[in-house]
């Protein structure tokens, strides 16, 4: 059903957005090329299952391959910082699409079709995505409160200070990249088996921007804010069909407006609202 279809999209988008939130939100390493890892996961899973591999094995395999490439790109984050890192990761995204376009075994510009159905039916597939999304939410909340989360936070705030505090900056950055990209790979594998067709345009720069937008609109580093933003933004173009002509414009204006008026995103808006409500309660 249509609603199930939308819910499925929401669930793997939440996983994808939270995966970037680990890197950019928690650890402060901006990435403009995250769609490449989503793509690596999708292509890995697609190749594996079209070749007769099991869907259940495809998921961890997609995570492993995406995480492996994430580990390599993580080294880049040890070399370059801030704006240089933003452009380097953007370059990784372009390199991914530029490479895939020329490779026959990846279907080139045409992509890979005929990805087999996981064979569990539409509703169970949605539930599977939902369970995995819930697990990723729980994992994010856990990491945020753990010692690792504090180390990430220290690196995001000020890398040099974190280093003087004795935090192994390199190790934590690499960890963030591996976790984040592996989860993006998982989201990609789920995406591939939902659309049953992957092509390189689905993982281009615009897609990287879209997922970054989910993290930023949600509130960088906030778990629940990002979940809400990802769920909303992923299906917004489908819900706004009535305003067909203006929805991309709306999207652009929304990105700008959030940065202009509420750089903390949904998270800071919710907090403000909460403070007002609880403030009134204590006053009254």
């Amino acid at each position: 059903m249509y609603e199930i279809s939308l819910l499925t999209v929401m669930c793997f988008s939440v996983i994808f957005a939270l995966s970037l939130n680990l890197i950019t939100g928690f650890c402060g390493q901006i990435s403009l090329g995250h769609a490449a890892f989503y793509g690596i996961g999708a292509y890995t899973a697609a190749l594996f299952t079209t070749d007769g591999g099991s869907f259940w094995l495809a998921l961890p395999l997609a995570m492993a391959v995406a995480g492996f490439f994430g580990f390599i790109v993580g080294f880049a984050s040890l070399r370059v910082r801030h704006d240089f890192l933003a452009i380097t990761t953007m370059g990784v995204g372009f390199l991914f699409t530029g490479f895939v376009r020329q490779q026959e075994f990846l279907g080139g510009e045409e992509g890979i079709a005929g990805i087999p159905d996981p064979g569990i039916g539409q509703i169970p597939y949605m539930l599977l995505c939902a369970v995995l999304a819930a697990a990723v939410i729980a994992f994010s909340l856990y990491v945020k409160r753990s010692w690792m989360g504090h180390a990430f936070d220290a690196i995001a705030t000020d890398e040099d200070t974190a280093r003087t505090l004795g935090i192994d900056v390199a190790r934590y950055k690499l960890t963030a990249f591996v976790f984040g990209t592996a989860l993006a790979g998982l989201a990609g594998a789920l995406f591939a088996h939902y659309v049953k067709f992957v092509e390189v345009e689905s993982f281009d720069f615009i897609e990287s921007i879209s997922v970054l937008a989910m993290v930023i609109v949600g509130g960088i580093g906030s778990v629940w804010g990002v979940v809400v933003a990802a769920a909303f933004l992923s299906v917004m173009p489908l819900l706004l069909q009535v305003f067909a002509d203006f929805k991309l414009l709306f999207y652009g204006v929304l990105l700008f407006a959030v940065m202009y008026f509420a750089p903390g995103g949904i998270d800071s808006l919710m907090r403000m609202l909460w403070r007002r409500i609880s403030g009134r309660r204590t006053a009254g």
Partner: peptide
């Protein structure tokens, strides 16, 4: 504001301008 704010705002503006 922190640098990522202007970066994202700029991306939003670019999308809006094209549209």
């Amino acid at each position: 504001k922190p640098p990522h704010v202007a970066l994202i705002a700029s991306i939003g503006l670019f999308v809006a301008m094209e549209e």
